[in-house]
Each structure stands twice: as structure tokens, then as C-alpha cells.
Design a protein around this nucleic acid. Sequence first.
DNA 1: AATTCGATCAACCGCGCCGGC
DNA 2: GGCCGGCGCGGTTGATCGAAT
Length: 352
Amino acid sequence: MMGRSPCCDESGLKKGPWTPEEDKRLVEYIQRHGHGSWRALPKLAGLNRCGKSCRLRWTNYLRPDIKRGKFSEEEEQTIVNLHSVLGNKWSAIASHLPGRTDNEIKNYWNTHLRKKLLHRGIDPVTHRPRADLQMFANLPQLLATAANLSSLMTNPLDNVLRLQSDATQLAKIHLLQTIFQVLSRNPSSQNSDLNSLLGAGSMPFQNQQMLDHLVRLSSQADGLANAAQLPCNFSCFEAPQTLHNDDIYRPPTATGRGQDNDCIDQFGNASNGFGIQSDAQMPPLVALYPEKCAVDKTEAKLNPKEIPNINPPPTSTTSTFECWSELLDDEASNSYWRDIIDQASSPSWPIS
DNA sequence: AATTCGATCAACCGCGCCGGC
DNA sequence: GGCCGGCGCGGTTGATCGAAT
């Protein structure tokens, strides 16, 4: 459609929060005359607003039949049920809940119900159990094993703090290995799933520094595993010698490296060289934010040659690297990992 | 007591549909 | 059939408030 002027860009029309006086004028006018044409209404009612703003204020706030207050359990259940059928059709959902507006339901979904479902291990988009969480199924076992190592130490008191740190570090590394495993299957299309899973920005695996960091971590993990007499080999993971900005790192495959390099992890599970189970046992990721996937796919279509080879803009690569660097090193990020670990350690997790 | 952080939700924005001309 | 304007919808923003530090 061409030439349509935005309704509120005329200078002088008020925007933002409504005053009680404006509310009064709007209510009185509509009670007396009905709203009629929303476009004509503001002038007739003596309001310095656009029609759209008036309509929104009336339908979402001032309408007399609006029900206020907390959503009941029945209403919550209705919303969840309807959302599983209708998706984000908030107005359609609202039509089944007398007195509730689409805006209110949408907000309530985003702030409460979505989190509630996620917490119960249900994907709020598909309304099915989150298959991606299965990948972390042996995380509690890993933590328990690492924590039990204290019994092997000669001086437990001295080692308690270090062991706690080591256990956390092992868990982090294990998580990173899982991420690499997912990337190795389809690096470009899975990034957004991982972003959703981890809540991070775009993935930084095109960054040589980041890879170096991961290689260093995996060798540290080897040291930890050796000290603990764990039969695992984190160093099976290696990064290429050099990595250009337009390269996407692909971890070595079993085909490429041969079976000699495959690993047996600390739990006796055969793995693909990353200390984790083979693809066949891994469930597919479930995208939590399909709209974000769409954006990522668009970005993935960009010709890599159009990406500058040197000094990428600090707003992209640098910031994501910093984000991941913090994730691994910064004490402040511990709460982030704690959330993941807490979730993995809860009795109701993993979801089957 | 001051500051920071996270949650909440009212309001805005832009797009697409639909009906009138 | 094509254009135009009104309206409704879904996504996003930003102000506000309470909790945590």
C-alpha cells in the first residue's frame, strides 16, 4: 500500500500515557455517541490524540466490561489450551475469555504462562516437552561424580573449594561440548536454537580467539579428569590451525578422524570425539523463537565474501565474544550457570 | 539510604486485511 | 480490477515499581 501516512506523525498530537482528564472525555463521548469512526472521534471528543490511540485506550482499558485482577486457574488453563490450538492469535483467544483483552492476555502469556510452561519443561510454542533439554540429561550425573571426588582426596578440607570450582568447570565444559556437537550437525541453522537455549546473542564460533579459548578449556578439563582418574579425553576436541572470519568451524567428524580418536566418556558411553553421545541418541532441538530463527536464516544467506576479513565491527563479533568470555570466566556469570545446573538438578528434570 | 536489576504492563508501531469507491 | 483509507492484530518499547544488593 502506498502513501499511507502514519496516524500519529502529525505534529501536535499527544502520545504516551493518558491523563484522567483525557480518559474522562473519551468515556463521556463514547457513552453518549458511541465511538463511530475512530479517525473522526478525537476531534469530536475534543481530544488531541489520534484515533488509533483512542481506540486502544478504550478497548484495552476504559471499556466498562473489562475484567480486572489476577487470572484464575481456569482462565490460565483456557489460555494455554487455546494457545496450543490457535497460537499467538490473541484476539481469538480473548474472544473466549469474557472481560479480558487481547493485550492483557498477550502480556500475561509473555510474563507468566510462557515461563511457567518452560519451567515445567514444556515448549510454549509447540506445547510439547522440550526435547532439547534431553541433551543435558547426564549433567546431574556429571556433577555428582565430580562432587564425590572429595572422598579421593587426602586433605578434603583443603580441597573442598577447589573441587566445587572444578565440578562447575567440568559441567561448563560438558555443556560446551554438547553445543559443539549440535553445531557440528548443522552449524548455520542450529545457531538460533542454541541462542534460544542459552539466551545469548549470535554464536561466536567464527572467532579464532573463542576457539583458542575452548581448546585451552578442553585441555584444562583433561587435566582435571586425569587428576580425578576419570577415563575421559576432552582434548579429542581440537580447533583448526587457522580460522578466517568467513570460516565456520566444524568439529572433526568420526569419518574424518577415524575411530581411533573416538572417546569413551567418564560414564563409559561411546562418543564421537567430544566426550558426548552420538547423534543418533540426540533428540532434535526445538526452536523456542521461530521468528528469531527466521532472522538468523536471513543472515545466513549473506554471501560470506561480503563479510570483511579483518577487524569485524566491534558491535558484532567482539560483543558476542565478550559475552561468551564472560560466560566462561567471569564470576558474575555464575548465576547464569547456576540456573542451568539448578534446573538440571531438580527432581523433575530431565523431562521425559 | 542509594543504587541496580528484573518484572510488569500500558501504549505505541507497523503491517496486513477488508470494504467502499 | 485496482486504489485508498479505516481498522484490527501481533510484536515491541519504555515507564514504573518493587525486590535485591
